[in-house]
């Protein structure tokens, strides 16, 4: 079984198929993460492709300081932040935007009704909490990787997760769902 790092190195050595595997593995996850930041599926997909293009045009070997996933998601996060800065959007308000209409569950994660409820609730909390929770719940990223992607300390990452969970619980409670059941 080849690791992501090995696949990336294979791609740099000229094997296009390795890139195809990486895209298949991470494109939807990264799109979902970026979607949580920018609030538009089309923009999220464009930014996902930009992130992949930036990553593979770097031509740098792994130094072992982070995993491929952390690196990719950190680039995706930077792209999304730059996009928001360029458009002068400080915070996405999914409520005022066409979030429910735009909420087409093209992504396999969102085909699950439970995940859809969670994601909709996530759109109503602080963007920093949302980023941390999406990475943690939907992408299964641990505390170490989370601090790497968000470029914050482990303590801060843990704090964000804790506060994020509390906010999410509140939102879900208001909407009549039980956090523990969705957990």
């Amino acid at each position: 079984m080849e690791t992501d790092e090995m696949l990336y190195r294979s791609y740099l050595n000229g094997e296009d198929e390795a890139l195809r595997v990486l895209i298949e593995k991470y494109s939807e996850k990264l799109t979902l993460f970026i979607y949580g930041m920018v609030g538009n599926m089309h923009d999220a997909e464009e930014l996902m492709m930009d992130s992949f293009a930036i990553l593979i045009s770097k031509n740098k070997p792994f130094l072992g300081r982070s995993t491929f996933k952390t690196w990719l998601f950190a680039i995706g996060r930077n792209q999304a932040r730059m996009f928001l800065r360029k458009r002068k959007i400080s915070a996405i308000n999914f409520d005022k935007a066409d979030f429910p209409q735009d909420f087409t569950p093209d992504l396999y994660i969102l085909k699950n009704e439970q995940n859809k409820i969670l994601f909709r609730a996530l759109s109503k909390i602080n963007p920093m909490y949302r980023e941390a929770l999406i990475l943690s719940y939907f992408e299964g990223i641990g505390l170490d990787e989370l601090s790497g992607v968000m470029k914050i300390s482990k303590r801060r990452a843990s704090d964000l997760l804790y506060r994020g969970k509390a906010s999410l619980k509140e939102v879900l409670k208001k909407e009549g769902y039980n956090f523990a059941e969705l957990g």
């Binding site: 890139l19 298949e24 494109s27 492709m49 992949f52 930036i54 045009s57």
Partner: peptide, 20 residues
């Protein structure tokens, strides 16, 4: 949503543009 092939070729195109 684009298919895997479309994504692949688009990413390759963007990579070439970045390198240029």
């Amino acid at each position: 949503m684009r298919s895997l092939d479309e994504k692949f070729y688009e990413i390759k195109k963007r990579e070439a543009r970045l390198r240029y």
